[in-house]
């Protein structure tokens, strides 16, 4: 298994995985209902990520097949210290490659690279009800920082 930075030729495969992430989120809350044109939006999102500085896009490959993706971006916390945050926005691994420590490797590599990009803390966004993701991060020393509440007005 190889973990490397994403390239242009990975866009289609990464977009599929990004859509899967969003569908998985929808399993936890109907406010994450996925739009019908999600694949097209995902492609633009991935291309924009590749084009902009301050973003991190890692892929895990088995042979030539993309089996995992991790997207993160740098953000500035203008009122808080530490100020520079590396935020993991999307993280997905295909089912048959789970429980083999690949997730661990990817988050460790992402944390190291975000640190080299200036991140003083690493944060990750996951749906509140996603207990699997919650356990994953808590087990690796993360703690819950913000509760985000939502309702239809």
């Amino acid at each position: 298994m190889v973990i490397r930075h994403a390239r242009k030729e990975d866009v289609d495969a990464i977009s599929d995985l990004i859509v899967r992430t969003k569908r998985l989120n929808n399993e936890f809350d109907p406010l994450f209902a996925v739009t019908p044109d999600a694949k097209g939006r995902a492609e633009k999102y991935v291309q924009a990520t590749l084009a902009a500085p301050g973003n991190l896009l890692l892929v895990a490959l088995e042979g030539r097949k993309v089996v995992g993706v991790l997207r993160a971006e740098m953000r500035e916390r203008i009122f808080y210290e530490p100020r520079n945050e590396g935020r993991v926005t999307d993280f997905y691994i295909l089912p048959e490659h789970r429980r083999k420590a690949l997730g661990d490797e990817m988050i460790q590599q992402a944390a190291a690279e975000l640190k080299s990009m200036g991140a003083e803390i690493v944060v990750a966004d996951v749906p509140a009800q996603n207990e699997i993701a919650n356990r994953f991060y808590i087990k690796r020393g993360f703690r819950a920082l913000i509760n985000q509440f939502a309702k239809r007005p």
Binding site: R20, R23, L24, E27, P95, E96
Partner: peptide, 22 residues
Amino acid sequence: HPERDDIDQLMLKNRWKYEIAI
């Protein structure tokens, strides 16, 4: 199969079928 569109739904709602798919 492990890449069926509903695979993550199976992981959460029917882990027996999820394991079989893998």
